[in-house]
């Protein structure tokens, strides 16, 4: 996934959140966005995921531009998956129905075919025994793993994960991060916003440091964490990495 972002600007009222942001990556599988809170990571991710329209600028993945019209965006969102910090599972549906809803109503599978499609991933990630529970009966870690499976159910081209472990305790964080690592191994492409720097270092092919509405620095994970030429990035990592 070669990502090219050009001149991305986003503002809410008088507050500029993204300020002519540019970012180019190589043909990588995992891009991790890091940086201070309020720096624009989530806003950037929502635009990449086709959930929000930027005021200005363009985004393209592997040479294909993300559309700017509602019909085009709808089609785009159907080809990618998004995972939110607060899971956003549908509380009135069982875990299983959360997974099959997009398959049945968006991708035209029969309910039986949809259940068959999600059976294997549920098994693989040890969630099969929880499939018939409502979200309120699941732990935070289980909720987030179901949410990840929901985003993956339609076999999207890539996944966008917005701080998927920020609402979780360390044990549940570990189980969700383990799942993301496993997904990377089986070839899932994703863009991840996270504050888990140890994990970012392990899983990222490239890292982009977003702060003040711009990409302060970006590049291969090893370079970024160890010898980033930007003092701001070095200071940030020095403060939070052991």
């Amino acid at each position: 996934m070669e990502l090219v972002v050009k001149g991305l600007t986003q503002a809410f009222g008088a507050t500029t959140v993204l300020d002519r942001l540019d970012l180019t990556t190589g043909d990588i599988r995992a891009l991790v966005l890091v940086g201070p809170s309020g720096g624009g990571k989530t806003t950037l991710l929502r635009i990449l995921a086709g959930l929000d329209l930027p005021l200005e600028g363009s985004v393209s993945f592997a040479g294909v531009t993300v559309p700017r019209d509602e019909a085009g965006l709808l089609a785009y969102r159907r080809k990618v998956g998004t995972v939110f910090q607060a899971y956003n599972l549908f509380p009135h549906l069982s875990a299983l129905d959360n997974l099959t809803l997009p398959l049945v109503h968006v991708h035209g599978l029969s309910p039986a075919a949809a259940r068959k499609r999600v059976a294997e991933p549920l098994e693989r990630f040890k969630l099969a025994e929880h499939a018939h529970k409502r979200p309120s009966q699941l732990s935070g870690g289980q909720k987030q793993r179901i949410a990840i499976l929901r985003a993956l159910a339609s076999q999207p081209e890539r996944l966008f994960l917005d701080e998927p472990t920020s609402a979780l305790d360390p044990e549940m964080t570990a189980e969700v991060l383990e799942m993301i690592s496993e997904l990377k191994e089986i070839g899932t492409r994703f863009v991840l916003v996270t504050h888990e720097m140890g994990f970012a270092r392990r899983v990222a092919d490239e890292v982009a440091f977003v702060g003040g509405g711009k990409v302060v620095a970006s590049g291969p994970a090893a370079t970024m964490f160890k010898h980033c030429p930007e003092p701001r990035v070095r200071e940030f990592f020095a403060r939070i990495l052991p």
Partner: peptide, 12 residues
């Protein structure tokens, strides 16, 4: 978040 999730999975 519910509307976000609905849009994210591609619902009209």
């Amino acid at each position: 978040g519910q509307r976000d999730a609905a849009r994210a999975i591609g619902l009209t």
